[in-house]
Amino acid sequence: MSDRRIEELTVLPEATADEVLALIAAGAEEDGQPAVSEQGRLRVRHGERAGVRHLLLWTGPEHTELTGYAQIDGSDPVEAPAGELLVHPGRRSRGHGRALGQAMLEATGKRLRVWAHGGHPAARHLAVQLGLKLFRELRQMRRPLDPAASDLPEARLPEGVTVRTFEPGRDEQAWLAVNAAAFAHHPEQGSLTLRDLADRADVVFVGLDEAQDL
């Protein structure tokens, strides 16, 4: 009997979703940041999404211990499916990551892009084992916006321009249009939908054209 079992699902039961999020949190505490993106974590909880699959790696005598998790997003009609994965910090260096990565490659016909958040040496080592090559690297730049902790000058708006807070039920379509235009070059950020926005706001927008798709 194998010491691990990999299960593929398109929808995670609530209890399983809780386990997955706890696993991601445990990994983030160990690694300094989540191995699964915000969008990926939202997909864990918010039901079935077209093209999205969840791979669960179970271990233990009865295969009841959630040891690894991977998510594959094949919704992009042009780009190869994108994936993210992690193994529980206390059960690493036992071949589980390689088994999970190989399962992802098999599930996608070896046409796969894998995000490794943080660029940890272990992730680079696993990439070599799986025959993957680095082709894109993102760097994040930040600065504080709190006036007390920042030297930013006071904002001066052009004449005739006003600023107000976002209003749910009124501003969604306009926000999505601006976001799509600003990130037309970005395959993930530029393709946000009304459902993606609703997931992040944790609300359901009623009365909009796409509300029935939520």
Rank of each mutant, 00 (worst) to 15 (best):
2 S>T: 08
13 P>Q: 04
14 E>P: 01
15 A>E: 14
16 T>D: 12
18 D>K: 15
20 V>T: 11
22 A>C: 03
23 L>K: 11
27 G>L: 08
30 E>Y: 14
32 G>N: 10
34 P>V: 12
34 P>I: 10
35 A>P: 02
36 V>W: 07
37 S>V: 09
39 Q>H: 08
42 L>I: 00
43 R>W: 15
44 V>A: 15
45 R>N: 08
46 H>S: 07
46 H>W: 07
46 H>T: 09
47 G>F: 02
47 G>M: 04
53 R>I: 00
53 R>A: 05
54 H>M: 07
57 L>A: 09
57 L>N: 02
60 G>C: 01
60 G>S: 01
65 E>S: 01
65 E>H: 02
67 T>N: 05
70 A>E: 08
71 Q>V: 08
75 S>E: 03
76 D>F: 07
77 P>A: 10
87 V>N: 03
89 P>D: 00
92 R>C: 00
92 R>F: 00
93 S>E: 05
95 G>Q: 06
96 H>C: 00
98 R>H: 13
99 A>M: 06
99 A>W: 08
100 L>Q: 07
101 G>K: 10
108 T>D: 02
109 G>D: 01
110 K>E: 11
110 K>D: 09
110 K>C: 02
111 R>E: 03
115 W>F: 11
115 W>Y: 10
116 A>G: 01
116 A>L: 11
116 A>S: 09
117 H>S: 13
120 H>S: 13
121 P>C: 14
121 P>T: 14
124 R>V: 12
125 H>A: 15
127 A>W: 13
128 V>W: 10
128 V>D: 14
131 G>K: 11
133 K>V: 15
133 K>H: 14
133 K>P: 00
138 L>I: 09
139 R>K: 15
139 R>I: 10
141 M>L: 15
144 P>L: 07
145 L>W: 04
146 D>I: 09
148 A>L: 07
151 D>E: 13
151 D>V: 04
152 L>E: 12
152 L>D: 14
154 E>C: 06
154 E>D: 04
156 R>G: 00
157 L>D: 05
158 P>T: 13
158 P>R: 12
158 P>K: 13
161 V>F: 04
161 V>W: 04
162 T>R: 12
166 F>P: 02
166 F>N: 04
166 F>Q: 05
167 E>N: 05
169 G>V: 00
171 D>K: 07
172 E>M: 05
175 W>D: 05
176 L>A: 06
179 N>E: 01
182 A>P: 00
183 F>P: 02
184 A>K: 12
185 H>W: 15
185 H>T: 10
186 H>K: 04
190 G>H: 05
191 S>F: 03
191 S>I: 04
198 A>N: 08
199 D>G: 00
201 A>F: 13
202 D>R: 14
202 D>W: 03
203 V>A: 12
207 G>L: 08
209 D>A: 14
211 A>S: 15
211 A>V: 01
213 D>G: 13
